[in-house]
Simulated assay, not measured.
Amino acid sequence: MRRATGLLALGAAALLLAGCGTGQIGESGGGTDPNNKNLAMITGMRGEPFYVSMECAAKEAAAAQGYQINVQAPEKFEQAEQSQILGGVISSKPGAVIIAPTDDKALAAPLKQAKSNGIKVVEVDTALQDRSIAVSSLSSDNYEGGKLAAQTLVRLLDGKTGSVLALNTKAGTSTTDARAKGFEDEIKKHPGLTLLPTQYTKNEPATAAQIVSSTLAATPDLVGVFGTNLNTGEGAGTALANAGKSGEVQLVGFDASPKQVDDLRNGRVQALIAQDPAQIGQKGVDRAIAAIKGEQVERETKTKMISITKDDMEQKKQFFYKSQC
């Protein structure tokens, strides 16, 4: 899910804080009451630290501008439950809905309905394939994040050769698909490394652990694993630890949840690619309010990311995610 995103200056904190706009301007549209002070946010999964960090920042941004925001999330990263939540949100008629779509196609129909009801749609973290619905999209540069993960893994391997595995969540999740593609394209530049077919975990840590365990048994020269989001990274770390392979097989995870930070500290994972969910949440609220008021907003913004290893984690702790507001 998420989680997103040329990033060669790994230690520059400004990379994470600065957004890179495309220069496109989204339509403000019509039919929305400019005095509507109610916002809705639907994140991708309840309790996931990435989304908790986004939610906390969104609540602060809304309150600072005199707006109410109702935040909801499905129990799992599932399209059906998120669609159900969205149906209730539409009936409550907020001025805007800020959403991390759990499927880049299936959520198009209900979000079209929201738009037709005069509700501005702002995408955060993930996005629909249909670009005609949302007025603005904000996410990490997930393709570049995948490339950064590959560059970090190559640096950690320090010339070691062998097979490398990428773990994705679900096909059709825009963020993790882009991360996997960026990782694949970068790894192909290194002939000493063999990229195995990408495996899908259904966003379940247990499934990720099973895949890594079976890959270890079938691929004795496995030297690296990339988990494209929090759950895949945690599952991979568990499998490697159980097999006594932590540190022998280099693991690069995505996101910086409290559990992943602990895993980095104790050596179960060797690097994390951190996003800036707080910036995405804050800017998502700003874009939503601007759209409600009829102002033009930037159509797409990509935020950059940073690589964190055990050696520099204390210097970069500002990028660790929250488990509660």
Rank of each mutant, 00 (worst) to 15 (best):
R3A: 13
A4T: 13
T5H: 14
G11D: 15
A13H: 15
G21R: 06
T22D: 11
G30P: 09
P34T: 06
N38G: 06
I42Y: 00
T43H: 07
E48A: 14
C56N: 10
A58H: 01
A63D: 14
Q68R: 13
E81N: 08
Q84N: 14
Q84M: 14
V89S: 06
S92P: 03
K93L: 12
G95N: 03
A96G: 03
I98K: 00
A100M: 04
A106Q: 13
A109H: 09
S116K: 09
N117D: 10
G118Q: 06
I119F: 11
K120A: 12
K120D: 13
V124S: 07
T126A: 15
R131H: 11
S136A: 12
N142S: 15
Y143V: 10
G146E: 01
A150Q: 00
K160C: 10
L165G: 00
L167H: 04
K170R: 13
K170Q: 15
T176C: 13
D177S: 12
F183Y: 08
E184D: 13
I187M: 02
L193M: 03
E204T: 08
V212G: 03
S213D: 10
T219L: 01
P220I: 07
G224T: 00
G227V: 00
T232S: 13
E234A: 09
A236V: 07
L240Y: 05
A243H: 04
K245I: 09
S246G: 11
V249R: 10
V249G: 11
L251S: 05
K259H: 08
N266R: 12
V269W: 04
P277F: 01
P277A: 00
I280T: 08
K293Y: 03
E295I: 07
R299M: 08
I306D: 00
S307K: 01
Y321G: 01
K322R: 09
Q324W: 12
